[in-house]
Nucleic acid binder design. Structure first.
Length: 466
RNA sequence: UCCCCAGUAGCUCAGUUGGUUAGAGCGGUGGACUGUUAAUCCAUGUGUCGUUGGUUCGAAUCCAACCUGGGGAGCCA
């Protein structure tokens, strides 16, 4: 490339006096009657734009420079100098400014250099990446994503690409999107009138995955430490600031590991990626702390320095009952805790991230390992102050007879789980894992209120534009 | 999906207890000023008042349905 990133220039990676070229978009223009204009140019490489000082002696000064508005794309060549003004260390003394793309009708350019509501920005998913806030989110999201891969790599995990299309509807975690090439206007029918999916692309019904867990267990039972990181789909008609129809999930799975091993991994993983963000995206985090959520940085710092609290579900229920707090939903052993209960535990009682373990079997999935007591399973949720459940996981049932008993108890067919059962028939091992909603993690780190703002192109009920 | 709230200029909002010509700030534009920091100062334009029906002599204002957004709940990651 023949040009330099704004990040490198501001980080001092180039010598003062060096001739440099930056390419980017105008954020603001300020004119001085001293015969110069100041251009703030951003290229996405870091939070801050670089300032270019443009003298009026340039031959396109009157007819082009003075017409520049927010959003115009430019190439600027000049000397890197120490700034004479306050607010930045370096700036470019421009010798040449080439306008690459004009903004037609600046009056109605949707990303005007002014404060916009986050809901407004959402309506311009194609232009909002140019804003401070979406740019910062994008860099933090990338940082978290890279840090997760780096963490698992350093821990000896393999990244497994589990399928996005699944032909087994036995995943059992909510509504699924159908995948089909059938002509809806002319569906093939069987003799009794049902849709004949044997004519469909896969020869049977197919869906978008709701979890890679069952698939990734097969690789855990061979390569020991593995994880998935990919898109996941849920077709529930869920309209909240925490839900997406298409989201990204991280699901580590480890062999020869019990529930405590999974909890320990979850804690190490979260602390690792939070530290990475604080180290690598300080500029963006400072923006979040300043404009989005005051304690954006300090709560990550305290998250990293604290040990996670650990509590059994049964004890957690006692804590809730003895709190004297009046909850909207009454507390008793056996309930699936609601947001208010989880928030009380993390935010008020423990005042730290807390791992709740060993839930009643009746509110958990068939694959979770039955405990000695016969009433609870080795499941865990990690609850974080300010967000609630951020991770859900379990030790998996590795005993075939117990698994089969659970399947029939829940009216599930053994045949539908034949390959899953095979793992228990051939060299079964205790293994554990958990799932982390990646977009929720980004929400937590940035302090953004709505998950639709931390993913580039959100998908939700009646929302699939762009 | 359920409950509550909102939908007025490019954007953020004020306003109208139903009645002739609907306002402000920001942004844009023009100018002043300045090594400036979405700077400051002056000037300036802009509106099917979410959509569709209904009530009424008359609706942006009242009513209904719908759409969109927000807050909360359920479901969940």
């Amino acid at each position: 490339m023949t040009h330099t990133s704004v990040a490198d220039l501001l980080a001092g990676k180039h010598q003062v006096g060096e001739q440099v070229t930056v390419k980017g978009w105008i954020r603001t223009r300020r004119d001085s009657k001293a015969g110069i204009s100041f251009l703030a140019v951003h290229d996405g490489s870091c939070f801050n734009p670089i300032q270019a000082v443009v003298p009026n002696k340039l031959n396109n000064y009157d007819n082009e420079i003075l017409r520049l508005t927010a959003g115009c794309s430019v190439a600027i060549t000049g000397n890197l100098v120490e700034s004479q003004g306050k607010g930045q260390s370096f700036e470019i003394q421009a010798d040449e400014v080439t306008v690459i793309g004009w903004v037609e009708n600046p009056d109605s350019y949707p990303m005007a250099a002014k404060r916009h509501s986050i809901e407004y920005l959402r309506e311009y998913a194609h232009l909002r990446p140019r804003t401070n806030v979406i740019g910062a989110i994008t860099r933090v999201r990338n940082c978290l994503s890279q840090a997760l891969h780096r963490f698992f790599h350093e821990q000896g995990f393999y990244w497994i690409s589990t399928p996005i299309i699944t032909a087994s509807d036995c995943e059992g975690a909510g509504e699924m999107f159908r995948v089909s090439t059938l002509d809806f206007a002319n569906l093939p029918r069987t003799e009794n009138g049902a849709v004949d999916f044997s004519d469909d692309f896969f020869g049977k019904e197919a869906f978008l995955t709701v979890s890679g867990q069952l698939n990734v267990e097969t690789y855990a039972c061979a390569l020991s430490k593995v994880y998935t990181f990919g898109p996941t789909f849920r077709a529930e008609n869920s309209n909240t600031s925490r839900h997406l129809a298409e989201f990204w999930m991280v699901e580590p799975e480890i062999a020869f590991a019990n529930l405590d091993d999974a909890a320990e991994l979850a804690e190490k993983m979260l602390k690792y990626v939070f530290k990475a963000v604080l180290d690598e995206r300080r500029d963006d985090m400072e923006f979040f702390a300043q404009r989005i959520q005051k304690d954006a940085i300090t709560r990550l710092e305290s998250f990293i320095s604290q040990d996670f609290a650990q509590v059994d579900y049964t004890d957690a229920i006692d804590i809730l009952i003895q709190s004297g707090r009046k909850f909207e939903y009454p507390v008793q052993w056996g309930i699936d805790m609601s947001s208010e209960h989880e928030r009380y535990l993390a935010e008020e009682h423990f005042k730290s991230p807390v791992v709740v373990k060993n839930y009643p079997k009746d509110i958990k999935a068939f694959y979770m390992r039955m405990n000695e007591d016969g009433n609870t399973v080795a499941a865990m949720d990690v609850l974080a102050p300010g967000i609630g459940e951020i991770i859900g996981g379990s030790q998996r049932e590795e005993r075939l007879d117990v698994l089969d008993a659970r399947l029939s108890e829940m009216n599930l067919n053994q045949e539908d789980y034949s390959w899953y059962r095979d793992l228990r028939r051939y060299g079964t091992v205790p293994h554990s894992g958990f799932g982390l909603g990646f977009d929720r993690l980004v929400t937590y780190v940035t302090g953004m209120q709505n998950i639709r703002d931390v993913i580039p192109f959100p998908r939700a009920p009646r929302l699939a534009d762009y």
